[in-house]
Write a protein that binds this DNA or RNA. Structure first.
Lengths: 395, 395
DNA sequence: GTGATACGTTGCACAACGCCACAAAACCGC
DNA sequence: GCGGTTTTGTGGCGTTGTGCAACGTATCAC
């Protein structure tokens, strides 16, 4: 509950303009005046300051075949990047992601076993050190965002519990910050996926969405509520995988009976297909190609259980859109009608509102973009404040 | 994504100050400077404007036994009120609620059968007409808020579906507006209950909470996510009653199998107690007094099912607090340990974060306060804007 | 080439807040 | 009870950021 002053107005307006060109891509100054409702002169001043800060560029207007003086195009600087880090069960992936959402570079460093925190930090730091020449010459690095498959305490990036990695109460952000010198933020991978899909994927412009991702190690998710990523009080929100969907005795990774994660698994799909391993695309192709009734029965069983969890979440959150990623997207692809009608039968809102179900769009770049977005967040909130520090230390 | 200008700063600061005295009660000007971070002179100007608008009063400082010049106490004007309307299956309740949260008057108009929309509007309009003398002389009415037991479209107050009242697609807000001349907003009763408990009840100062209410006609709920009441895209959010908690064949009011509302019912508690009817307090007393093992078994059964739904919601939303109202509060009172440990066993976050379960505090005034809050919302968002209109029409 | 249109640019006015100096009202110690 | 200290209200002034209006400029249409 804070009051605002002149500084806040300026900060807010800079933030709004930078967010717009960040999320919607390049825009002309006249478009910015229309969207923000600000005066032409104000937009000119704001853009000038952002250019000064090295965050955006202005370039010659496009030929638009419109009468009137053409308006310069404002786009995000290509030099401003964040680093994205994603430790997984069999690899650590590090990426350089531009403020425009472009993934400049992605390095996947495979590990023979699930990395410890120290190993993950060392791998990330080593890869980043390898990039350092490039980072210091051609890029301006805002910070590092880490997408962790587990519960992460939002405010300090402490990994409370990452079951598949075997991490408990590890101060990941602090360690990576010490190892690299960049500011580090960490969050749950699926929450970041939700954010990425919302801003750059299937959920562009949508204010209320649920994102569920099915991976080798389970089901996680995230949500946007009222336009804002919902993390809950400590950042643990989005654990859709532990929703009860049946009375069966199957247990999930947390030892809870009859949950979505216990009933709907990638492993069982692979087994019934007779595959040893497959990525999300291969699994989807195999499922679509199969005519085996056993495969079909397993898919139907999983779809029906998925529908229970989705309907429950829809009844609670009344979203506009449900985005499915990983093998859950494959289930949707195999029989969209079955999933849609099962969800509709179990949800109230869907009879009156209209919920869309769709597959994730960002594919393998999802977590890179999501993690980078986390790192960009501070810059977007206060474009002048943070770069002032950066500029100070860079000079 | 809008820019802000000076007008917005003023509006925002007025809004912040009015919200503070509305929610936290009376406060000294010096307290306001500390909380808002604004300058003394600014607070003085803001308070002066709010006094001018007739929204707050300043009174002589209390004896505080502190050194220094005493700071005047700012409190909300006692004249500013909202009207609250709550149509139910057996009555329509109308109230006058002050900006300070005080319920000045409450009229319960019983009906022999569930009222139609026209009847409910007529009853409310007649009662309000009866109050009109008082309303026009001693009070300044901001508007009307309606708490409806059903799905309400947020932006225009259209009642999409209120199963227990038998209403479908009724333009309630519009009708009541035409009948009374006051601006009308409507929302789901449980969502408003969540808001009321958050600001004036068990959830004071909490940013993430879930509220579940058990009534004669079913279970509804609402939630606060990141400090903001979450309505979903159309205002239908919070339907916790239709969450799947078992595989049984019992169906709820929407015809969905094995849901919370199907398994956890007030009716069955009354039946096993051998009571014909009872209000929430009487039911709780009877449950606490009973030593019948059959009663105990039914309570345990319902608690276990309630725990499944609560744990699911907790896993998804990671709230700080779960508030239970109606007969759900009675279940909590009978065996808090059973409910708490069942929830803990089924939820992830509770193992790491700490979720509190508590009973609602506001009792019979809950929906009056919640509905009034809905009507106050516009005033709180823009204190100068709305009263300017009101003052114009009142002069 | 001329007019119309749309937009950038520039200088000025206005509004709101912070700052500072002074005044006022309480408490404290003697 | 009286001066010193502390805290806060009050009023004038300066700063800042935005809106506005007039003017300049680039494009299209004819």
């Amino acid at each position: 509950m804070q009051g605002s002053s002149h500084d806040d107005v300026r900060r807010h307006n800079l933030s709004v303009v930078l967010r717009l060109v960040h999320r919607s891509g390049a825009a002309s100054r006249s478009q910015l005046t229309k969207v923000t409702g600000l005066n032409r002169s104000t937009i000119a001043a704001l853009v000038a300051e952002l250019v000064e800060l090295g965050l955006v560029m202005e370039r010659e207007p496009n030929a638009t075949n419109q009468v009137g003086r053409p308006s310069p195009i404002v786009s995000v600087s290509e030099q401003v990047v964040a680093l994205a880090v994603n430790p997984e069960i069999d690899a650590v992936t590090i990426g350089i992601v531009g403020l425009d959402g472009q993934v400049h570079r992605r390095v996947r460093y495979p590990t023979d076993r699930s990395p410890s925190v120290v190993e993950a930090v060392n791998i990330a730091a080593a890869v980043i050190d390898g990039m350092r020449g490039e980072l210091e010459t051609t890029f301006k690095v805002v910070g590092i965002g880490v997408a962790v498959p587990g519960l992460v305490r939002a405010h300090d990036g402490l990994v409370r519990h990452a079951p598949h990695l075997g991490w408990v109460d590890e101060p990941l952000a602090e360690m990576l910050e010490a190892a690299t010198g960049y500011p580090v933020l960490a969050a749950n991978d699926a929450s970041l996926g939700a954010m990425a899909e919302r801003f750059f994927g299937a959920g562009k412009g949508i204010t209320d969405l649920i994102y569920l991702n099915g991976g080798a190690s389970g089901i996680g998710g995230g949500m946007i509520v009222g336009g804002v990523p919902a993390g809950g009080v400590a950042g643990y929100a989005g654990e859709f995988g532990h929703t009860r969907v049946s009375d069966s005795d199957r247990v999930d990774s947390a030892g809870i009976r009859g949950t979505l994660e216990a009933e709907v698994t990638r492993r069982e799909l692979l087994e019934v297909l007779g595959l040893a391993g497959a990525d999300a695309d291969e699994l989807e192709q195999a499922l679509l190609a199969s005519t085996d009734p056993l495969v079909r029965a397993e898919v139907d069983r999983q779809i029906d259980h998925l529908a229970v969890a989705l309907a429950g979440a829809i009844n609670i959150l009344n979203p506009q859109l449900v985005v499915l990623g990983g093998f859950l997207a494959a289930l949707l692809a195999v029989d969209p009608d079955r999933l849609r009608s099962a969800v509709a039968a179990l949800s109230l809102g869907s009879a009156f509102g209209s919920v869309r179900l769709s597959a994730a769009e960002l594919g393998s770049n999802l977590l890179m973009i999501g993690a980078a977005e986390l790192a960009f967040e501070g810059l977007l909130d206060d474009p002048a404040g943070l770069t002032a520090e950066n500029a100070g230390s860079a000079d």
